[in-house]
Design a protein around this nucleic acid. Sequence first.
DNA 1: GCCGGCAGTTGATCTAGATCAAGTCGTGAT
DNA 2: ATCACGACTTGATCTAGATCAACTGCCGGC
Lengths: 240, 240
Amino acid sequence: MDVAHSEVLELGIPVACRSCQARHGVVCGALSSSQLRELGRHSLRRKIDAGCEIVAQGSESSFYSNIMRGVVKLCKVMPDGRQQIVGLQFAPDFVGRPFLRESTLSAEAATDAEICVFPRNLLDRMISETPELQRSLHDQALKELDAAREWMLTLGRRTAEEKVACLLHLIATHAEPQTATSTAFDLPLSRAEIADFLGLTIETVSRQMTRLRKSGIIRIENFRHIVVPDMDELEKKISG
Amino acid sequence: MDVAHSEVLELGIPVACRSCQARHGVVCGALSSSQLRELGRHSLRRKIDAGCEIVAQGSESSFYSNIMRGVVKLCKVMPDGRQQIVGLQFAPDFVGRPFLRESTLSAEAATDAEICVFPRNLLDRMISETPELQRSLHDQALKELDAAREWMLTLGRRTAEEKVACLLHLIATHAEPQTATSTAFDLPLSRAEIADFLGLTIETVSRQMTRLRKSGIIRIENFRHIVVPDMDELEKKISG
DNA sequence: GCCGGCAGTTGATCTAGATCAAGTCGTGAT
DNA sequence: ATCACGACTTGATCTAGATCAACTGCCGGC
């Protein structure tokens, strides 16, 4: 986090400033400075290691968070162990389910991450007092809903190769482009996680990755680092 | 609609009353009587035949609606014609995408239906003026998001038989139960639509339906009418 | 430097569900 | 009554992706 842009609040916890909302999360951008100060007094900034759980499926959670850095995966698991990743979240997304205490999914850091943790009661009160905050959370919920439905199309109707291309495209759009057409990024997910996101097996994911590599659409360096020389070529694999 | 419970407003259009929100849609339940009167003055109640489109994918829509009766399906289609139903909506759900003019999906009546159509501009104004309305739409968005993610698990990780059981379960929970354990309902979707909802083909849907029939979990009368003698048995097919 | 273990790849085989091809049933028009 | 058509079912076959089984390459501990 860019400390020059943050307010350092009571307890020494940097939370956010109003002038650069995008960097600091959907929550903080919608609050007045006195609300921010109060929230900061009760919030905690935490470093999270990859793989560490933020919210557990089926548990009651007494806090919300904002992602400040890193990638968070949202998972659902069935009693028999089958697993599906139902969404990825990037900074500055909000993590938590307003208006419902029990979580129907788990949130887990996919990479090392930093989050800002808010007490649930306090934030709930602020939501009901601050239409601008309600609006900003409503807005995020709708974006997630659009993304979820787009992914339903991918899960239900695309081939394995298209699915993998979709995943690479999704992650590429959250990375800084290198030039007008090319992008490079580190995959935040293992092959097993990609499989659980796409409804495939590890082996098929691997095969489709090498297919895309052999066709020249991507380069793979050290398993996790991906180079896309031409995003248009990648998009052609998706549109169907 | 229960006319005894409605206010008949200017233009003779019955819209809603505050005392029985559930019957009349998430929008009307959150409004004051003067807002209701204003909204009613610019709203239209419409009967819609099965198959008729309410909002087209990719189009700009200048209205929202509330479902008063019937079932609405939300579809996404790919350029090459592959199709995925990404959600079903029942009365009293709200139809439309707040904060975004262009629709990324189409909404189509799955059965004969009745909807209440609101001008977009007017309702947008009311949303920004009425935290209670914002809250109620936020709440519906979150419910749809939960449902979408549950369905992602179904699409990505369940077998064909489980998928069909999930669909029947979903529709059964929106029908009036007959006794403590048994339910009966008319399917609002054709086999082709069920296939597009589950990411399967017509033939597999049909085969799995007869499998469930032969195993005694459901009875099928006249193709479209389903009897579930014991909902617990149906749920067992789902949990995995 | 060697060893063990995890993450990923690649190959051989199997199978759930797709595809192709007849069917049946029910309904509405002539 | 008969025909035509659309919605659904059923059967035979095919195939994309799953499963099973090596194998590679990297990284960390000793």
